[in-house]
């Protein structure tokens, strides 16, 4: 089951790259997010899965579709056909190298011993990672100010 979800994730990712229609590409990306969220649920990361499915598959897809609808022109951005034909070769070559590296090297890496975690998610998130939360608030504010600055009306605008 896990392998099929990961295969679905990779397939949706490839579709997102190769659809020439940007709207279809954005929806494929949302599909990839849903597959990733299911993988996270399967590994027991329920909170991360919920965030992935609501924020990434929901909010970011809406942002993508809004941007596409504000900007799209049909004849825009011709892609290089040679690069498109090269992708399957690169992909197959990379899979071979990836399998070799995984089977020869990564599988033999010894795992460093560490204590297993105890407690619940709330304790770790609100208690152990408080500084992360402060940084997150700062990043959200920075994003909001950036968007406001980019969309402000200039004095010369009609």
């Amino acid at each position: 089951m896990h392998i099929f979800l990961l295969l679905g994730l990779v397939l949706c990712s490839i579709l997102a790259v190769f659809f020439s229609d940007l709207l279809k590409a954005a929806i494929s990306l949302a599909g990839a997010s849903v597959f990733l969220a299911l993988v996270l649920f399967e590994m027991g990361a329920t909170y991360a899965g919920v965030f992935e499915i609501s924020v990434v598959a929901g909010l970011i897809t809406v942002l993508f579709i809004a941007t596409i609808s504000l900007t799209e022109k049909k004849e825009d951005a011709k892609h290089n056909k040679r690069m498109r034909l090269l992708f399957p070769l690169v992909f197959i070559g990379f899979i071979l190298i990836d399998v070799l590296v995984m089977s020869q090297y990564l599988v033999k890496l010894s795992s460093l011993a560490g204590p297993a975690e105890t407690g619940v998610f709330g304790q770790v998130f609100w208690g152990g990672r408080t500084f992360d939360l402060v940084a997150q608030i700062a990043i959200i504010l920075a994003g909001v100010f950036c968007v406001l600055a980019l969309f402000r009306k200039r004095s010369g605008d009609e």
């Binding site: 996270l40 909170y47 991360a48 975690e117 152990g128 997150q136 994003g143």
Partner: peptide
């Protein structure tokens, strides 16, 4: 997995921003 989830949520916030 609990710490990994906390980091993942922080990462999603950065990504959206």
């Amino acid at each position: 997995i609990l710490t990994a989830q906390s980091l993942a949520i922080s990462f999603i916030v950065v990504e959206v921003s």
